[in-house]
Structure formats: C-alpha cells, structure tokens
Nucleic acid binder design. Sequence first.
DNA 1: CTCCATACTGACTTCTTGGTAAGTACCTGA
DNA 2: TCAGGTACTTACCAAGAAGTCAGTATGGAG
Lengths: 112, 112
Amino acid sequence: MVVMAPYTCGLDAAADVIGGKWKPRILWALHYGPRRFGELRKDVSGVTEKMLIQQLRELESRRIVHREVYHQVPPKVEYSLTALGESLNAALAPLDAWGADHLDELTATRSC
Amino acid sequence: MVVMAPYTCGLDAAADVIGGKWKPRILWALHYGPRRFGELRKDVSGVTEKMLIQQLRELESRRIVHREVYHQVPPKVEYSLTALGESLNAALAPLDAWGADHLDELTATRSC
DNA sequence: CTCCATACTGACTTCTTGGTAAGTACCTGA
DNA sequence: TCAGGTACTTACCAAGAAGTCAGTATGGAG
C-alpha cells in the first residue's frame, strides 16, 4: 500500500494486527509461555517454517512478541509475549470463548 | 479447499468467521441497528458494492446477519445482526477496546 | 572430515482475495 | 417512452498471501 487509510476504529486496528492465516494460532500457542521456534512449529500444526518466521517477524515488529536469542550451538531462540501481547491475548479470550461456544454451529455453516 | 482441517480452537473458528477485509467494519456498522444496503455502503467507506454483497452473503450463510427483503420499487433490503451476530459483536468488543487503547502504538508500528 | 541439529533465508510458483467496470431487473413518475 | 432509484450480478484482471523446496551458518560429536 502506498497510502494507508487510518484505522476507522479499534477493531479495525486489532484486525490488522492479528490478520494472517497463522497469527491467532501462534498467539494462542504463546499463551502458555515462552516457546522455541521448533516447539511452535509443532504446536501450530500445518505451518511451514517460512510462514512461521514471517508471521513471528510481523508480530515482533508490532511489539506483540519478544524474540530472545541464545548464542549457542545448535542455535536456540525463544519467543514470548510482551506486555502488549498479553493484553491482546486477554482481549482475544472472549472471542475464543465465543468460537468454542458456537463451534458446532460454525462448523456446520462452513463454506465447503 | 477440498479437505478442511477442523478448527483447532475457538479462536480459530472465530477468525474464520470474521476473516476478510471488510467483515469487522460491516459488523461494527450493524452494531447500531438494521441498515439498508445503501446505508452500509456509506458507513463502510471504501468498500465496493461487489465486496459488500459478497461479505454480507458470507455473514448471512454463517447466520451472523439476517437479510430482510421488502418487495417495493425501488427495492429495499435491510441487514441486521442475528442473536449469534450480537453475541459475536459482544465478544469483539474487548478487541475493539484493545485496539482503541493502543491505537497510537499500533499506528506507529504499521508496516509502511 | 563429515554429519547433525537448529533456526533461518530466498527464489519461484500457485492460490486466494480484492478491485474495476459494465450490465440487469423492477416499477414509478414526468 | 424514458430517466431515476435501488440492489444486485458478472466477467475479467491485479495484487497479495501462502506454499514448495533447496540452501546457509555454526560448532560439537563421532
């Protein structure tokens, strides 16, 4: 985008941050505490390394997740939620509950 | 999609429902009560007719919005939230609040 | 001297989403 | 007879998101 329209409401801004196929699931995986790259790859099943990194980088640039590098061999990198990330996850909780509550309904009306 | 992976959590399901460039804003516009097609087009600034209809149809098939046709000339169609839609919007409220709270931060870290 | 584990990186392709612009249907009122 | 107002519908194209897959760096184990 060359010109970016300002956010029209908080929801608009939030949607921009959690947009992308994998971000909600990454956030959810991080909910349980810091995770290494390889652990996330397993937790978020189906994600490719490329996408996982890409999404993590975006979340990092938004200051939602923190990246901690341990200078070891083999390398170790841990990802964790920042305070902002924690607050985002808290705001996401009701949405998760809603989805869980209506899971059957939502599954039934999936496009197919 | 030929084979669809089951939802991994409530958040996953919810994200599927509100996914798409315009759905959050449409939902938000509907928050204030029933709206005609033409009104929504103005409320959700920037949306094209095609996209608005497409997203509304998707929300309708998920039973988030209700479509009421008045057989008049010129035609009149009103869209409103169903009970499910209302509950979704309620779950979305904290997310909107979060976005509003951190609007400056989020605007500052936009990709550009 | 080679292999291993881990965390990436990059080129290339495919798939999905969104945008443009034109056209349809209907009755009313001038 | 013909423009006006409303809510679509369709065909086509462009942009962006995601997937595939091969390659890189490091130092210790064997």
